[in-house]
C-alpha cells in the first residue's frame, strides 16, 4: 500500500511542492543570502558581508525606533485583546439573552480587510480629534492609540470565538462539583476555568502576538507612519527601505531577516512557555 502511494508522488505532492518552492522556499533562501549582498534586482548580487546589517542598525535609527514602537504596540494590544475577548467569552457562555446575535456582531469586524479598517478608523478618530483642532497625524500618541483601538476592534471577535469553544469544552460535572462545594465565582475562574482553557490561551496568544508584530495594512492606511515615521511599525519600515530609496534593497533584506528572527524566537518561546502550563494543569 505504502509503495503504491509513493509512486503517485507526482499527482499528490508535486503541484503543491512546486508552488511552495516558487512562492516560499526559494525566495526565503535567496532572501537569507541576499541580506549579505548589494543588489538592485535579484540577479546582480555582490557579496558585502555584514555591511547591510550594520547599516540597518546604523544608518539612521528608523529601524530601532520602529522596533520599539512595534514592541510597545504588541504588548498593550495583546493584553487588551485577550482580556476583553476572554471576558466577552465568559459573558456569552452564561446563557444571556441574544448570545448568538452578540457573537455575530463581535466577530464581524474580523472579516473586514486591513486597508478598509484603517480608513474607517481614520475617519472616526480624525472626526473626534477635529473638535480639539488635531488630526491623527499631528501627534504619534494619537496614531499609537489609534492602532491599538483598531487592532482590538478587529481581533477581539476572533479570539472570543476560540475562548468560547474552550470554555464550552470544560466538563460540566467539574463546574457543578465546584458549585456544590460552595466555591466562589473567583475561585472557579482561577482554579477551574482558566487552567482548563490553557490550550485556547496558547493559541490566542500565538495568533495575537504574531499578527500584531506583522501588522502592515492597518498601519499603512491609518497613519502610513506619520508624523515623520514616528508611528511606523517594523513591517512598514522594511517595506519603505525596499521600495522607498533606490540602493537600499540589501538593507531592507537584512532588516527582514532580523524581523523574522525576532518573530520566530518570541513565537516559539511563547508556545514553549504556555504549552508547559497546559501539561501541568
Amino acid at each position: 500500500m505504502e509503495n503504491t502511494v509513493k509512486r503517485w508522488f507526482p499527482v499528490f505532492a508535486l503541484p503543491t511542492l512546486v508552488a511552495f518552492l516558487i512562492a516560499f522556499l526559494i525566495p526565503f533562501c535567496m532572501g537569507l543570502y541576499l541580506s549579505f549582498c548589494n543588489f538592485r534586482t535579484v540577479t546582480d548580487a555582490q557579496f558585502v558581508g555584514l555591511a547591510n546589517y550594520i547599516r540597518a542598525f546604523g544608518d539612521n535609527n528608523e529601524f530601532v525606533s520602529s522596533l520599539i514602537f512595534t514592541i510597545k504596540f504588541v504588548i498593550v494590544s495583546v493584553i487588551t485583546i485577550n482580556v476583553i475577548a476572554f471576558t466577552l467569552a465568559l459573558l456569552l457562555t452564561r446563557g444571556v439573552t441574544g448570545t448568538n446575535l452578540f457573537r455575530t456582531v463581535f466577530f464581524m469586524p474580523n472579516l473586514i480587510g486591513g486597508i478598509v479598517l484603517g480608513y474607517i478608523w481614520q475617519l472616526i478618530i480624525n472626526g473626534f480629534l477635529y473638535r480639539f483642532g488635531y488630526s491623527i497625524t499631528s501627534n504619534a500618541t494619537f496614531g499609537y492609540w489609534g492602532l491599538v483601538i483598531l487592532t482590538n476592534w478587529q481581533m477581539i471577535g476572533y479570539m472570543m470565538i476560540i475562548y468560547i469553544a474552550g470554555i464550552q469544552n470544560i466538563p460540566t460535572d467539574i463546574m457543578e462539583a465546584a458549585k456544590v462545594d460552595g466555591a466562589s465565582p473567583a475561585r472557579v475562574l482561577f482554579n477551574i476555568t482558566i487552567p482548563s482553557v490553557m490550550p485556547s490561551i496558547t493559541i490566542c496568544l500565538f495568533l495575537t502576538i504574531t499578527n500584531a508584530f506583522k501588522l502592515f495594512d492597518q498601519n499603512l492606511a491609518l497613519t502610513a507612519g506619520a508624523p515623520s515615521k514616528q508611528t511606523q511599525m517594523v513591517a512598514l519600515d522594511i517595506y519603505n527601505t525596499f521600495y522607498g530609496r533606490i540602493g537600499s534593497e540589501g538593507v531592507g533584506q537584512a532588516k527582514a531577516v532580523v524581523f523574522f528572527v525576532i518573530v520566530a524566537v518570541i513565537a516559539l518561546l511563547q508556545l514553549y512557555l504556555t504549552r508547559r502550563k497546559e501539561v501541568e494543569s
Binding site: F216, Y239, Q253
Partner: peptide, 17 residues
C-alpha cells in the same frame, strides 16, 4: 513557513514571480 513574516520573502518572491 507559517511563522515567517511576509516581509522576509516579499522582494525575492515578487522578482521570481
Amino acid at each position: 513557513s507559517m511563522i515567517v513574516p511576509f516581509q522576509m520573502v516579499m522582494f525575492t518572491m515578487s522578482k521570481i514571480a
